[in-house]
Nucleic acid binder design. Structure first.
Lengths: 236, 236
DNA sequence: GTTGCCCGATTGTTCAACAATCGAATACGT
DNA sequence: ACGTATTCGATTGTTGAACAATCGGGCAAC
C-alpha cells in the first residue's frame, strides 16, 4: 500500500535520463510520471500521496511536486482533501454516469456534425479498429482496452477541435480509473470491438446518421453496464 | 502597461479581508483574483505577469503564486512561455474558431439530447433572457455581455453534467478574452438578445429540434463574425 | 551594419523553516 | 467499561532566501 509509492522510483529510474533529454520543466515531468503511474494502475484509487516521500521518490523538491499534484488535481485524476493531502481519485457511480453523459453528447455529435472528417483522421479511426482486432487475437486485454481508447479518441478527433481533443483526453484518463476498479476489464471491452468496426465503416462510408445512432446505443449500453457495476453487486 | 500589474493591488486591497473570511488556500485565492482581473479586462491580452512583483502585489509568496499561475495556465487564460514567464493569453482567429467548434457541438446537443431539462434549469435559462433585457434597457453593455454568458451557461447546464459545466466555464472565460480584444463588444451582443429569447421559449415549449436548429445558426453566425474580425479588417 | 559577447533580469528549482490542522493514541471522568 | 477531553506526532500550507539556467538587450568588435 505505502510501497506503491516506492515503486515509482524503480519504474522511473530507468526512464530518468531519456525523459530528461526530451526535457521540459521538472514539474511537468513529475506530473507526467504520476499520471502514467495512475492510469496504468500502479497507483490505485484511494492511495494517499504524501508529498515528502513522493518528492524524494521522484527526485524533485516538495514545491515542484506540489505544482505537479495541482495539475493532476485539475485533471480530476487526483483529489485534494484540504489539510489531509492528495489521494488518487475514487470515482463512484455518479462520476461514471457523468462521464458518459459527456461522451454521449460529444461523440455522436462529432460523428454527425464534426468538421474534421479528413483522410488522416478517418485512417486513424480505421487503424484503431485494426489495433483492437490484433490485440484481441493475441488475447492481450490490456491492448484491447488501449485500442478502445484510441478508437474513441479518434472519434472525438473527427470534430477537428484541439480543445475537444484535450477534454477527451481527460475523460479517457478518468475512464482508466473506472476500469482499474473492476475485476475483469478485458471482458468488458471485448464485446464492443465489432461494434467499433461497424461504426468505423459507417463513418468511412459517409453514413453519419447511422454511425451516430449506433454509437449512441453503444455508449448508453456501456454506461448502463458500468453504472450498474459501480452501484455494486447486490446494492440497490 | 506594466502598471496594469500594480493595479491589482489597489483593486484587491479592499477585498482582502472579506475573502480571507471565506478562506480556502492562498493559492486558490490568488488564482481567483487573477482570473477575475483577466476576465474583467483589467489585465489585457499580452501583458506579462512577473512573478516577483505580482506575488508582492497579491501578498503571497512566489511559490504560492506559482501554483496559482499554473492553474490559470491549465485554464488557458494564461500561457507560459518557458523561461520567459507567463502572459495573458492572446487568442487568435484559430482560437476563436476552435472555441466555436466546441460550442457548436455541445450547445445544440445539450438542447437536443440533454438529460437535465429540469424545472430550475429551465427557469435559469428564462432568467438569463430577462437579465439581458433589463441590462439592454439600461444600456448596460457590460451587463448584456454578462447575461449572454449566463444564457449559454444555462444552455450547457441542460445537459445535466458537472464536467460539461466546468468545461463550459473555461470556454466562456476564454470568450471574455476574445471580447476584450474588440472595440465595441456591446454592439456585438445586442442583436443576439432576441434570438436568446426565441430559443429559450422553444426549449420551454419542448420543441427541442427547432431550438437546437436556431442555436446552431446563431452560433455559426457569431463564429463567422468573430473570426472575420480576428482575421483583422482588410486582412484576407 | 552585422556579428558576437557580456550582463542584468527573470525563471526554474531547491532547501529549510514555521504555524495550522488532522488523526490517533492517550489519559481522564464517570 | 465506555464515552469524552487532551496531548502529540505527522503532514500540509506557506514563507523566505538562495542558486543555476536561460533569455533579451545593449555594447563592442569587425
Amino acid at each position: 500500500m505505502a510501497d506503491d509509492v516506492e515503486r515509482v522510483v524503480e519504474r522511473l529510474d530507468g526512464d530518468r535520463w531519456e525523459r530528461r533529454t526530451v526535457m521540459s520543466t521538472s514539474a511537468d515531468r513529475a506530473a507526467r510520471v504520476l499520471r502514467e503511474q495512475v492510469v496504468e494502475g500502479l497507483l490505485r484509487s484511494g492511495t494517499r500521496l504524501p508529498e515528502q516521500r513522493l518528492a524524494a521518490a521522484i527526485g524533485v523538491s516538495r514545491n515542484t511536486l506540489r505544482e505537479a499534484l495541482s495539475q493532476l488535481v485539475a485533471e480530476r485524476i487526483l483529489v485534494r482533501e484540504p489539510h489531509r493531502g492528495v489521494v488518487v481519485a475514487t470515482p463512484d457511480a455518479d462520476d461514471v454516469a457523468d462521464v458518459y453523459r459527456v461522451r454521449l453528447l460529444i461523440e455522436p455529435a462529432a460523428v454527425l456534425h464534426g468538421t474534421g472528417h479528413t483522410a488522416p483522421r478517418l485512417a486513424a479511426l480505421r487503424a484503431a479498429v485494426e489495433e483492437g482486432w490484433t490485440a484481441s487475437g493475441a488475447e492481450d486485454w490490456h491492448g484491447v482496452a488501449s485500442a478502445n481508447q484510441h478508437f474513441h479518441r479518434a472519434v472525438v478527433a473527427l470534430a477537428g477541435s484541439a480543445r475537444l481533443d484535450a477534454e477527451a483526453e481527460l475523460l479517457l484518463a478518468e475512464m482508466r480509473l473506472f476500469f482499474h476498479r473492476m475485476e475483469a476489464p478485458g471482458e468488458f471491452h471485448r464485446p464492443y470491438l465489432d461494434e467499433n468496426a461497424v461504426i468505423a465503416d459507417l463513418v468511412l462510408a459517409g453514413r453519419r446518421e447511422e454511425a451516430a445512432g449506433r454509437l449512441t446505443d453503444y455508449l448508453a449500453s456501456a454506461q448502463g453496464q458500468l453504472v450498474a457495476h459501480f452501484l455494486g453487486p447486490g446494492r440497490r
